[in-house]
Design a binder for these strands. Structure first.
Lengths: 232, 232
DNA sequence: TCGCCTGCTTGATGTTTATCAAGATCGGAC
DNA sequence: GTCCGATCTTGATAAACATCAAGCAGGCGA
């Protein structure tokens, strides 16, 4: 574990409040590794051996069933993943692969559980994190069950615009086939959905999307903090 | 707070490990109430004032957007709901109403958060609970994104059969329009989905469903513990 | 520069699902 | 018993979405 990465890990909400000794013993047990793109990190159904922290790059979490595959989440720095499985000492529900060359911190599951048992502050930080994750998934589920594909895309664009400069020019954070899967549609359908949004001022130029009429787009999208605001 | 209900609440995984003093002070602040059927308990967007425990009856959690409504979850005894919102001191993401006359325990949110701050064992129990809830929602999302409506129904029937006697005779736990919404479809479509399953030995008689050929149904449904097993 | 691969788009078609309207069924009130 | 209302089912139609096949770019190595 190189010491140059320690401060940014220590500053994560998940770790900042835990006792120094416990943090050090966690980091002592942890591995810092760089993985190439498209490397299979974890497979759904396998026991959860590590808690992962993404320090650099990007990890795609996906799930499969009956020959189909769907992207569940993209984890960017400084996000963690597979926390729930680690705590419950259960199997992974999602598979994970690097979508680009990535620097990851791997903390052995047993050490995480030990710190969780011994460090009340850590346990409380975990609750915050888990509660946040839970609410995110609930929002995604509302998005899926209550909206059409076009509405999901429209809201996604508005949300990205908010996260980025809010100036009506959005850079897609992943390629379009991944975005389609995240939004629960096929790549073909995403393409058509962009066309459907053209009358609402949405212009596509590769990964750069221009929102010429945010008002009209929002009138279609009807965004609500109870689905689209990631801080609520 | 009547003392006859205390033991079963105390025995819940969420409360069993916390210090007696903290449990008592929680219960002292709590209200035990009986509500009639179809009573609006909470509304999405409102601040989370109470943690709810269902002691008797049944509560339907649902969400709305743009005039549509979808059922997210049915909470039966002895389940709790809105834990994440209470802990984060955030607004409810779901609305809730009693689906029948129900006895509920209402614990003021601030008292829950106080106990969470002061009682490490309680904090750890909360983590267990939240991690379990999180994994349930993830499974539901996989179900929604990877399967068709007929496949979801088939797996739901197999899961109910497992929970009940496992003898191929299933009693639906709610009316069909609610089940349809839970499974992410319209009541009309649920009716047609049952017809589609007829060749697989599924016979409908009101709320009683007979599975005459579980093997053939399972061959269609392709159940997997990573979606359908609520204990994994 | 050329070819080629990859990612994206488009078109044609079929499946899945929702919507609207009408009937059927069941149970309770009277 | 009969009426009534709620729930469910069925049919017709339309919308949403997936699939298959082909075409179109842009990037990159040779």
């Amino acid at each position: 574990m190189r010491s140059t990465d320690l401060p940014e890990v220590r500053a994560l909400p998940l770790f900042e409040s835990m006792a120094e000794a416990n943090f050090e013993s966690l980091m002592q047990a942890a591995y810092l590794q760089i993985f190439p793109a498209q490397l299979e990190l974890i497979k759904e159904g396998e026991p959860a051996d590590f808690l992962y922290v993404v320090l650099d790059g990007c990890v795609e979490l996906y799930a499969s069933w009956n020959g189909h595959e769907t992207v569940m989440e993209m984890v960017r720095p400084l996000g963690t993943f597979i926390l729930a499985a680690v705590l419950k000492d259960a199997v992974y529900l999602k598979s994970g692969r690097t979508s680009q060359r990535s620097k990851l911190l791997l903390i052995p599951a047993e050490n995480v559980r030990e710190a969780f048992r011994n460090d009340g502050a850590f346990a409380r930080a975990i609750v915050e994190e888990l509660a946040g994750c839970y609410r995110e998934v609930v929002k995604q589920q509302k998005d899926l069950k209550l909206r059409t594909a076009v509405e999901r895309l429209a809201n996604c664009l508005l949300a990205l615009d908010g996260e980025q400069h809010g100036c009506g020019s959005v850079e897609l954070p992943c390629d379009k086939r991944t975005l389609a899967s995240l939004l629960g549609m096929t790549p073909e359908n995403l393409s058509r959905a962009f066309n459907t949004l053209k009358p609402y001022g949405v212009e596509v130029d590769g990964a750069r999307i221009r929102l010429r009429d945010v008002t009209s787009l929002a009138r279609l999208a009807k965004p609500t903090p109870l689905i689209d605001d990631s801080t609520v």
